[in-house]
Design a protein around this nucleic acid. Structure first.
Lengths: 157, 157
DNA sequence: GTAACATATATGTCACGACATATAAGGAGT
DNA sequence: ACTCCTTATATGTCGTGACATATATGTTAC
């Protein structure tokens, strides 16, 4: 099996397994990985328009995440209002329950990242992160991640 | 954003983008990435029981891939028979159309791997492949990939 | 004021991944 | 022969990703 094919399948396997573990960890919070990503973005950057949220979601690329948000609204975690400036726009904020849930999600993620950091000790990741970044930066998911990083930087300053 | 979080999202972005490009390339062959993976495995290793196919599919982990195979049968690419030895088992072979399709799929994959090889020139992947392999080897998808590698080795000897 | 174009979001549809459950068949033990 | 357990596969269900289409609203040009 040539290296590129092995890389393809290892990335797929890693994504699948990571998603499975995340799903299992989040299941007691009653949210899915996609929902948790949306909640975490709103926790840090709300209020956001639906499209703005969509621009930062890696899991849901290039489309307005209507249905993910609908489920969060139905679960009482997110609130939708119509923008006064542009009635096409939906403005999203977290409810108190949503804020609380986002905090728990952050804890679950932190534990997962601890495991990942431990697993990658002794592995030089920088070159590979750069490679993956170059590979994806023109894609919707890669741009979403860049938007996310930029927003995080902006929020810190 | 801590390194582990960046790794998580870059892997997700890479998987999504790779899948999108594969889907686009395969669309003129009329198959999806999941179907193409199944066809390629059957091309190399048929006849296989459904469960044996499932054991080698990275895209469809830990479950018997009934529905993917049903669609391949409906499209005239795969043939199902009941095993004479064990009537629970479904035996899978490729039809002539399926063989032909699998060859075209291999060409599409080859082009994709050429691009990936080019993109990764100058990047030391070995350490990262080893890291991903260690990360996933206990998971269903990782074991499927190992099964796949073992079957390929076995077929070569 | 109206038409055309652009934008934001919602919905339809299909394939699928994943978990749970159901059904049929095979094997072992008595 | 019968029971119990295991195995192989099929199906139900939910959430989702992705593409296409629809609807509502905003902007620009005339």
């Amino acid at each position: 099996m040539r290296t590129a094919e092995k890389l393809r399948y290892l990335i797929l396997a890693a994504q699948r397994e990571g998603n499975r573990q995340l799903t299992a960890s989040l299941s007691e919070l009653g949210v899915t990985p996609a929902q948790s990503e949306a909640l975490r973005i709103l926790a840090d950057h709300a209020p956001l328009a639906l499209g703005e949220l969509g621009d930062m979601l890696v899991c849901d690329t290039g489309t307005s995440p209507s249905r993910i948000v609908d489920r969060l609204v139905a679960n009482g975690l997110v609130q939708k209002t119509t923008s006064a400036q542009d009635r096409r726009q939906v403005r999203l904020t977290l409810t108190a329950a949503g804020q609380d849930k986002a905090q728990h999600i952050a804890e679950v993620e932190s534990q997962l990242y601890d495991v990942l950091d431990q697993a990658s000790e002794g592995t030089a990741l920088d070159g590979f992160l750069a490679f993956l970044h170059a590979l994806t930066q023109q894609s919707p998911a890669g741009r979403a991640l860049d938007n996310r990083l930029a927003a995080e930087e902006h929020r810190r300053n």
